[in-house]
Structure formats: C-alpha cells, structure tokens
Design a binder for these strands. Structure first.
Lengths: 331, 331
DNA sequence: CTGAAAGCGCTTACAG
DNA sequence: CTGAAAGCGCTTACAG
C-alpha cells in the first residue's frame, strides 16, 4: 500500500499537498489535484486511519459493547440499533464477549485500543484498577440497566407496563405469579423487580421476595437458565399460574421447561418476558413481553460515548405487548 | 493518559528503558524496573495499541466480519466461535452490518482501519475498485459459502446429511418436497441445492428447479422471508408436505406461515432447516436441521485471516438432526 | 545494562 | 497556492 509520502514523490509535490487533495481542499492547483487523484485511484490507496486517529486525537473512533451472554438475541438487536446510530456520527461498534473472569482482561484490551466509549451490559462492576485505566485514558463508560450508575443513566420506567400485565393476568384468572430473575446481582435496584412487587400486590397477588427465583445467569445462557429454572420450579407440581422472566430468551426456555413438567402454556401457566425480541411473534405460543424503545436507548448510549451529549439522564417508558402466551379474559 | 515519554521523565530514565520494562525485558536494573512499574501502576497507564500497531506492522489486529442479516441468530453463534478462536492468537473480531448498497462503503472503512482480514458472509461480490483497495492493503478476504471463491475455501459436504433427511422424510410419508432458498444469487453453486436435487430424486421425490422458491433474502430478515414465502406458497392449498429452508431462521418464519394457512407442522408439512441453531430445541415443534461443525469452520476462517495457515481448502461434513418438526416413520 | 535516533503514516500549525 | 517541520505514541535496530 502506498503512503502519502510515495504519492507525493510520484506526483512531484509535497506530502502536505497530497493531504490537501485527500481532504478535499479546494485551493490546490487543478493540475496537481488531478495528478494526485489519478495516482490514488490507480493504486487503490486508502488512508490509514490508525495513523490518522493517532495524529488527530490519539484514539480510535470505535465504541466497545461488552456483552455477558452472546446467546441473548436482545443484544443483537441492541447492537444493530447502536450501529445505525453510530454510523451517523462516524463511529464504529465492536462487540466483546465478557464473563466475570474475563472482564478486566477485556477492559484492558479496549483501553489499549483507545476506544472512545465502553458500554458494559454485564452485571459485574469493573475493578478499581480497571476503572483507573479507563479514567486515565479518558474513556466514557456506561452501564445500561444500573439505575445507580454515576455517569450516565438511561432510566426505564416499567410501572405502566407491569401494571397492565398484572391486570391482564388477573383478568385471565391467574392467582399466583412469580419472577424468574436469573441472578442475585442488582436485585432490588432492578426496575422490573420493583414494579413486580408493587403491582403484584396491588392486583391481589400475594407477592414477596419468596416469589423471586434466582439461578446462574449470566454464567449459563438465558434460554438454558430459563429452562432449568422452570423445570426445577414445577417439578413438584404447579406452584404458580403466572410467570415473569427476566428476558425473552429465558421465557423461551421456561416455556419448554414448563411443558416438560406436563403443564400447558398458557392454559396452566401464563408467561411474560422482557425485551420484545423479534422472534417473540414466531414462537408458539407467541410470547407476551414488555419492551422498551430500543432505538432511543441505543441512541442515548452512543451519543453519550461519542461525546455529543452531556445530559446525564434520559428516561423511557416500557410497553406491554400481550400475545398468546397469557390467558385472556375471554377464555 | 501518560505516555512512555512522560513515564521516562518521571523515572529519570530513557524511553527505551520504559519500553523494556513494559515488554518484560529481564535486563533492566531492578531499581529502575521497580520505579517504572510503580509509576505505571499508580497512573493506570495502558499501552496505546494504535501507535504500537502502526509502528510494528502498520495494521490492526482486528478481523472484520461482514454480516448481511443481523437478525439471523446463526451469525451470532459464528461470531462467538470466531471470537474464542481469535482470542487465542491475539486477534479481535469486529462485526459490520452490510447490505447490497453499503458493501463498498463498509469495505472502504475496514480497509482504512487496516484490519488483517475480511470475512464476507454476504452474497454480493465486492466491486473491482474495492477489491483493488483490499489487495493493495494486503488484506486477506474470505467468502464463506462460496464454493468457487479463489483464495480460501471451507467446503461443506451436505450429501450425507441431506440424504438422511430425504430418507426420513420419505419414511415419514412425504410425497412432495420443496426448498425455500430466499435468493436467486449463487443458486447452483450452493451445496445445499445440489444435494437437494440429487437426493430428492434418489429418494423418489420428483424434484427439479420448479420446487425451489426464491424471495428477497437478504433484503429482508430471514424469519420474515420464511414467513412470507410460506404464506404465499400455501395460500392456494397444500402443494408440498416436506420443506427445506435455507436456514433455521427462515424455517421458524415458515412454520408460522404454514400454520396461518391452516396446516399443521409436522402432521401436514415436515420442515427442515440448516445451521443447527441453539434455539431449535426450544421451538415448538423442535426444529429438525442440518448443522455443520461451527467451531471448525470459524477456526478455518480465523487462521486464514490471521495468516497462520496457507492451506487454501478445508472440508467438513454436515450432520442431520431429526427433531419434532418432521413426521417420523412410527407415526 | 542503557540511550539516542530513525521510522510507522498521518495531522496541524506556520511560513512563504 | 505550496512546503518544511514538529508531533501523535509507539517499535526497532544500533552503539556504547
């Protein structure tokens, strides 16, 4: 691959003039401009962005997305939204798969690459040591779903959606509802859990912490977690007739688990997920879910990481999508 | 963020000595080493890989994965496998979403970032102009699923798997089978289609090109494509009782489409997908599929892009996984 | 055991 | 309209 130096040599001009042409500067003599443009086209020259970024601001244009469970379809949709948004402001998203063990290692890697932002979808906090690196490299970091994050928050209000779900479960004849949460981490900070406890009681379900079930998420995949949790829960009989799952993937697994215990969905157990994943409508039964405005959320994270916004908090409202996985009033 | 220069200044040594310590060189005087290590730890210094890569070999350590349909779960699994493999040899994978319109733009971008390889999962070829850029930057490029690709091929043999699927469909009572292919591109190069035509006839199905159906994949998502194609196909009645789909996502959509036409799966129509996606087992009915050794395939691409192998061809055998979406002999 | 120097391919004032 | 020069943060011979 040629460099500006080589192009300048061949065109008989200085490197600075080549830079001008590449940048679209109008002041260059047409004759020189054409000569340079021809060489560029013929040689297939492409500007080295590593060098450009180093010279310009010592950092890359990419934003790191840290994902704890790559099998969760939701992250793919989120990635998609973030990519579209990032493209508009000249940024790139790179996905990194993390686990509790590898988090620090991955942080170290992305700091080394001088990304302009880190979006950590994991449930673990980064260590003091890693945080120092992030900060000293002046990299923005955001923790989606942590209502207590200091830097940037995208607050999702689940109240109306969970309220409506409870109302419909009640109307459909449910008596006892539970929540498959998957992990003990961040439990009572979670808006979903808060809304579950509040509106569960309000609609006459006698819910408390005993109705929240944990597991090993994200150490195993969401769908396997849901499957295992449901099998365990219903092995001894039908303890509940309504169930919320932390996310749609867990709900898919839970539905299979419930069935393998000899129960039907939704006739015996109504199931509600979170995320409004594309596949929900294709499942059998179509999955009821609580979704959030994905594009808005993605935009919030990207704009923050790209340094385009300083407002530390944005809010959005979750929405309930009733589908075939819950019993309806008329039935 | 400090630089080597600043660290050297504070430690009262030269930049070269700092480099030595950071590289783990044993020859540095313990006193100096400790001084430097302390400054590094206290300041949260992290080596700037942009600069390091530029100085070392003018390119980054990342490999670009170009994906035409981000909603296809298969790519996520492939990405996962590639990441694990790449990590071992110090590489990173970046996903880029492409469409027919944006392919050249994305190629330009990744060439600019001087990735060490491009894995193009799309069905379009890159333009002459883009190809020149890729080549002049000395970037390796691979086209999975193009049996006629010049540089590197990972050949998948579908014969045994499709043969077995046909045999089981036949035994289950199927009479007429079709193939939802989704696109007209690369049709007769495709190993799945070749095997479909060959073994369809061999097992007494009167298959020909008329039994292959096209659509707008990858211009719309696989699941939507499968849904739309199946609805159209079965709107006028039950023309087939066995169906192969280009991939599992298309099969999910097709199953819903078939049902909305008043037919049952597998009682009326048996469905077989390709890819052996994680979700197959959680679907209702569990999806029969033909899978390939994902990890091996991923490893082939990565090792080629990382320059660790020169062998231009690797082969693998596809495997049939019969599940509830096909009628069995005993029924 | 250590350091001065050239180089990677770019950008950005600055001078003419 | 153009070019020489310093700088981004590193690596890599080379000399001592």
């Amino acid at each position: 691959m040629l460099s500006r130096k080589e192009i300048a040599l061949r065109a008989g001009v200085s490197k600075t003039t080549v830079t001008r042409v590449l940048a679209g500067d109008r002041t260059v003599l047409p004759e020189n401009r054409e000569k340079i443009e021809r060489i560029v086209a013929e040689s297939g020259y492409t500007r080295n962005m590593l060098a450009a970024n180093l010279a310009k601001n010592k950092r890359s244009t990419s934003i790191a997305m840290l994902v704890p469970d790559m099998t969760n379809y939701y992250y793919m949709q989120m990635f998609n939204e973030m990519v579209s948004c990032a493209r508009k402001c000249g940024h790139t998203i790179s996905i990194y798969s993390i686990s509790t063990e590898t988090l620090d290692e991955v942080i170290n890697e992305v700091v080394g690459h001088r990304v302009c932002g880190i979006i950590n979808f994991g449930l673990d906090s980064v260590s003091e040591e890693s945080l120092k690196k992030v900060q000293s490299a002046d990299i923005r970091i955001v923790y989606p779903g942590w209502p207590e994050a200091e830097n940037y928050r995208f607050e999702i209000c689940y109240d109306a959606a969970v309220r409506e779900a409870m109302e419909q479960l009640r109307a459909g004849g449910c008596r006892r509802v539970c929540f498959l949460f998957g992990t003990r981490r961040k439990l009572f900070q979670d808006g979903r859990i808060k809304a579950f406890l509040r509106y569960g009681s309000q609609y006459g379900f006698d819910v408390s912490e005993k109705d929240i079930f944990f597991g090993q998420y994200t150490d195993r995949s969401a769908v396997e977690e849901g499957y295992a949790a449901a099998k365990e829960l219903f092995a001894g009989g039908q303890r509940y007739d309504g169930m919320f799952c932390l996310n749609d993937m867990m709900a898919y697994g839970a539905i299979r688990g419930i069935r393998e215990c000899g129960l039907r969905v939704p006739a015996d157990v109504s199931v509600v997920g979170f995320d409004n994943t594309l596949l929900d409508r294709y499942f059998t039964p179509a999955l009821s879910t609580i979704g959030i405005p994905l594009a808005e959320e993605a935009e919030g994270y990207i704009r923050y990481c790209a340094g385009e916004t300083m407002e530390p908090v944005r809010k959005a409202e979750a929405v309930f999508f009733p589908r075939d996985s819950i019993r309806r009033r008329s039935e």
